[in-house]
Amino acid sequence: MLYNWLYPLHTEFSILNVFRYLSFRIIYASVTAFLIAFVLAPWLIKKLQEIKLGQQVRDDGPKRHLAKSGTPTMGGLLIIFAVVLATLLWADLTNKYVWLVILSTLGFGLIGFVDDYLKFIKAQSKGLTASQKFAGQVAIALAIGLILYFFLPGYSTKLSVPFFKNFTPELGWLYIPFVVLVIVGSSNAVNLTDGLDGLAVGPVMIASMAYTIVAYAAGHRLFADYLLIPHIEGAGEVGVFTAAIFGASLGFLWFNTYPATVFMGDVGSLPLGAALGTVAVISKHELLLLLVGGVFVIEAVSVIFQVLSFKSRGKRIFLMAPIHHHFEMKGWEEPKVVVRLWIIAILLALLSLSTLKLR
């Protein structure tokens, strides 16, 4: 919005020429999202407390979590608001990819909101059924896949494989269900990770920064040619969006760090995961998400293995799933679990960025 309004005036006011630089807008989108989240968080927490919108803690987990019962939830509303507003302010609103990531975020945010609304306001303990939630997620992700395939001429359906520069399999129409898999899988993986104070939002910040670099490089022809990665015209503008995710998450983390005074809820975790998946698709680095979001993958896989093992053998692999609860059951303090998984997320993000050159 600011770019579209102010940059055309740069011929009269030379100072406005800074809006042409994507790096400038990326930085200020992040700062803007942080300030929005940081300033509005106390007000939102107070409102959530007034309407008694508190988290219900499962009683089969670590007993110390029972003390968190009643902590305000649905704080993800703040993250989504800050991300979307900062993106609208600093991104080029004529860019089709910007609107696509906003669509993904708001669509999955709506699913998360309805789920949280039913659980915490209507007191329906399970919220949306698994099939209802999954159907909504698939519908939105499918719409994104169809838009990319049918309405964006020239958009490549080739798959970029980390560490390989010449191996780019052509998926054709199969790219559409692949997009659905990436976005829905990413959304649910982040949702499963959101179980400890600051656990999900930390890796989200790290992944968003990594994809800011990836999107910027993919959208810059010289960088893309130098790194031998697919050049996606206009994809760099998505870096404004991912930078906003970083800033908003950083502001939210101030209040979500241990001991948390607010939780994000499904209205935060589902759209943040979907946003990362959508950015991975747009930047043509879909498989890289397995590395960038490695912590989310570990959390999701731990649940899958736990369920399969219990159903097939009647035995559990972990003391409790997702795996962060397993470490808690083994006696690790919550902050130790969170920080160590953050460390793993940072290392995986660095490794993922190295694949831009190592191919």
Rank of each mutant, 00 (worst) to 15 (best):
L174R: 02
E334Y: 06
M74F: 07
N4L: 12
P177I: 03
K47L: 14
D194Y: 09
T193H: 05
L356V: 02
L270Q: 10
T71C: 14
L148F: 10
T73Q: 03
P259G: 05
W254Q: 11
G294H: 13
K46S: 14
L228N: 14
I26A: 11
S30A: 15
V292N: 12
L350R: 01
F120K: 05
T129Y: 10
L53H: 05
F163V: 14
K126P: 00
I45P: 06
T73Y: 08
L48Q: 03
S104D: 14
I232R: 07
L16W: 00
R20I: 00
M209H: 00
V339L: 15
L110A: 15
D225Y: 08
V262R: 01
A200F: 03
L159P: 05
V262S: 04
G331F: 04
F167N: 04
L287R: 10
D266Y: 09
L227P: 00
V262D: 03
L103W: 15
E170D: 14
T105R: 12
F24M: 00
Y258E: 06
F24W: 01
V295Y: 08
K52D: 13
S125L: 12
K165P: 13
W254A: 12
V18H: 00
I183E: 11
V279P: 11
E12K: 12
G185C: 13
P259V: 07
F113Y: 13
A82S: 15
R313A: 04
L48E: 07
V31D: 02
A130M: 13
P322M: 10
H324E: 01
A224M: 06
M320V: 00
H285Q: 15
K357V: 13
L351T: 13
M329H: 01
S302Y: 10
A135S: 11
L88K: 09
I147S: 07
G61E: 01
S283F: 10
F163H: 04
I27G: 02
I51Q: 11
H231L: 04
V238K: 10
N17F: 07
F151I: 02
V338Y: 11
A135I: 09
W5M: 08
H231V: 03
T212P: 02
I147Y: 13
G198Y: 02
W99K: 11
N256K: 06
I282A: 09
A29M: 02
H325F: 04
F13C: 00
P335S: 01
V204W: 10
Y7Q: 06
T261F: 09
A143Y: 12
G107C: 13
E170R: 03
V190H: 14
I282W: 07
Y21K: 01
L291G: 12
Y211I: 05
